[in-house]
């Protein structure tokens, strides 16, 4: 019996799973995001910087916990790279249970840097009438 096709299938399965598993962005921490529908037209562009805020208020960037000062440094680097705050595409992913004080601290410093637009991450509701 010819087992070449069988070996092909095995390798194809391995390649498929390896490829699809790498599609998950490591910069997105596992958070319990607010369950909201979001904008009707979502900007599909990959954000320049993703800032995660965990339920305990920890800032997480690229899967590493960072201080607020370090977060602002990274945002400032993005502003410099983009040639101004208008070109910065920031995605804020905050846990639904995180106190707003952490978002407020970040927001004030973003405004100081000239940033007046951002995107806030939500997860699509699993059931109708998702409680915030």
């Amino acid at each position: 019996m010819d087992i070449t096709s069988l070996v092909d299938v095995v390798f194809l399965l391995i390649v498929f799973f390896l490829t699809t598993s790498s599609l998950v962005e490591m910069s997105r921490a596992v958070l319990d995001l607010p369950e909201e529908q979001g904008e009707e037209e979502v900007d599909t562009a990959t954000p320049g910087l993703i800032v995660n805020i965990a339920a305990d208020g920890t800032y997480i960037i690229e899967n590493e916990p960072v201080t607020l000062a370090r977060t602002i440094e990274m945002v400032r680097a993005e502003v410099d790279k983009a040639g101004g705050p208008e070109g910065v595409d920031l995605l804020l992913r905050a846990d639904r249970n995180a106190p707003l004080v952490h978002i407020n601290d970040l927001a004030r410093r973003l405004v100081d840097l000239g940033l007046t637009t951002w995107r806030m991450g939500t997860q699509l509701p699993q059931r109708k009438g998702g409680q915030p």
Partner: peptide
């Protein structure tokens, strides 16, 4: 292999976004 990959796959919920302006 199938069982291994299915067990180790993480199910991530689909995400969306809101884009409010920001002002202090």
């Amino acid at each position: 292999l199938l069982i291994y990959f299915f067990m180790t796959t993480t199910q991530t919920p689909p995400e969306s976004e809101l884009a409010p302006a920001l002002q202090a």
